[in-house]
Simulated scan of single mutants.
Amino acid sequence: MASEPQPTARAHRPNLTITEAGRRRTVLSFSGRLDSGTLGGLEERLVDPRLLGAHEVVLEMNDLDHLDLACAYALLRAATGRPGNAVLTVRGAGRTVLRTLHDVGLDTVAVIEE
């Protein structure tokens, strides 16, 4: 009896792409799902020198389907670890992603454009 091929972890891997990088502004675009299985990759991306050196970081979440609490807290840690004059902006997050961001308090340290 042949078994069905099992989906690999790659199939659920989110796409975390820096789509614009500059000293003034850097954009990190999200797609797919961010959950505990992808937390390590998210944390690695959040310490990318292009993000850390930018005055404004924009998180484009138009294509993000799911964000769990562990990943939302990683975003909060990254936001609160930025220099005082740096700006973090969240754009395009869907209703469930927005709810998770609000639940962890990201809206108190970032600009959330709904």
Rank of each mutant, 00 (worst) to 15 (best):
V97R: 11
A54I: 08
R50F: 01
G84N: 13
A74P: 14
E60M: 01
R91F: 03
V109M: 03
L51S: 11
E60A: 14
G105Q: 09
V87C: 08
E114I: 02
H66S: 07
G37Y: 04
R23I: 04
T89L: 08
R99I: 04
G22Q: 02
L101R: 09
R77P: 00
R99T: 07
E60I: 01
V109F: 02
R25G: 00
E44W: 00
R45A: 15
D65G: 03
M61P: 05
L64D: 02
T19D: 04
R99K: 14
L46A: 12
V27L: 01
F30Y: 13
L101A: 07
E43F: 04
L101S: 01
D103R: 14
M1K: 02
M61K: 08
L75H: 10
R77Q: 04
P14G: 10
T80I: 13
S29D: 07
D107R: 07
A2S: 06
R13A: 14
L76V: 11
A70D: 12
A11R: 09
L59N: 04
L101D: 00
M61V: 06
C71E: 13
N15E: 13
T100Q: 10
D103Q: 09
M61E: 04
L101H: 06
A86S: 12
E4H: 11
L59H: 03
L52C: 15
A93M: 04
S3M: 01
R25P: 00
I112W: 05
L106M: 05
R10N: 11
D48E: 13
A110Q: 08
A70G: 09
P7K: 05
T8Y: 00
P5E: 07
L106H: 10
L98K: 08
D65M: 06
S31C: 02
L69Y: 09
S3H: 14
A74T: 10
A72K: 11
R82I: 03
T108I: 00
T89E: 02
S3W: 05
R10G: 14
T89C: 15
N62C: 02
V47E: 03
H102I: 04
G22P: 06
E43P: 05
D107L: 04
L34P: 13
R13F: 09
H55M: 12
V58L: 01
V97L: 06
A79M: 08
R99E: 12
G32D: 06
